[in-house]
Nucleic acid binder design. Structure first.
Lengths: 94, 94
DNA sequence: TAAACAAGTTTATAATATAAACCAAATTTT
DNA sequence: AAAATTTGGTTTATATTATAAACTTGTTTA
């Protein structure tokens, strides 16, 4: 039987965010917004969910005087993503 | 930029249904229900959506005296699935 | 100093997935 | 042969989600 897909990752924007974070040391809100094309509101909400699930770590600080929200994937997030991709392979023929 | 994911296919159950139909000539309601583990209600609704989108063809008939709902993927569905998988590859590193 | 901008957050709305309840016909049980 | 159960679904209700719109707080810039 097909494995269930982690609902936290099976969301276009959250998947995009994780997918980007997998490849970099860290990324800030503005960068994620650019890369995903999401609205600030949507991005803010989804980052929060990923953070609350422990999939990413969020550090809010300042660069000079501008606020900066820095996101970094955690080991939990990495593992969940790997699991998700494995499960997905059952659905698409790869 | 990441390609958007066809929202009709980016749904666990609908994806499962299409994924099964891709591999067979046709499949009936009961078989799809078994294979996906979905409830009848949910499956009924999702089959309807796929059908209305033209991704699958649904033929309601009888076998002996029992009703039978037969589902078959269409060319449109096949193409959409291919597109979806391509887009997905942008999200997962494959 | 007022207007515009940056970087987000909060709230409202619309869409979705899902389960629960329901239905009709056939089959099985008593 | 009635009553109960099963089969093969559909319809309706609910809870969750995604998303956008509106708002906030502070900072530049004109």
């Amino acid at each position: 039987m097909l494995k269930p897909l982690d609902p936290l990752l099976h969301s276009e924007l959250r998947l995009a965010v994780i997918s980007i974070l997998i490849g970099v040391e860290a990324a800030d809100f503005v960068y994620l917004k650019e890369r995903t094309g999401a609205t600030s509101g949507n991005l803010s909400v989804q980052i929060d969910k990923l953070s609350k699930a422990g999939y990413i770590e969020v550090e809010k600080g300042f660069v000079g005087r501008k606020p900066r929200t820095l996101c970094k994937i955690t080991e939990i997030g990495r593992a969940a993503f790997k699991e998700y991709v494995e499960a997905l392979k059952g659905y698409i023929n790869m």
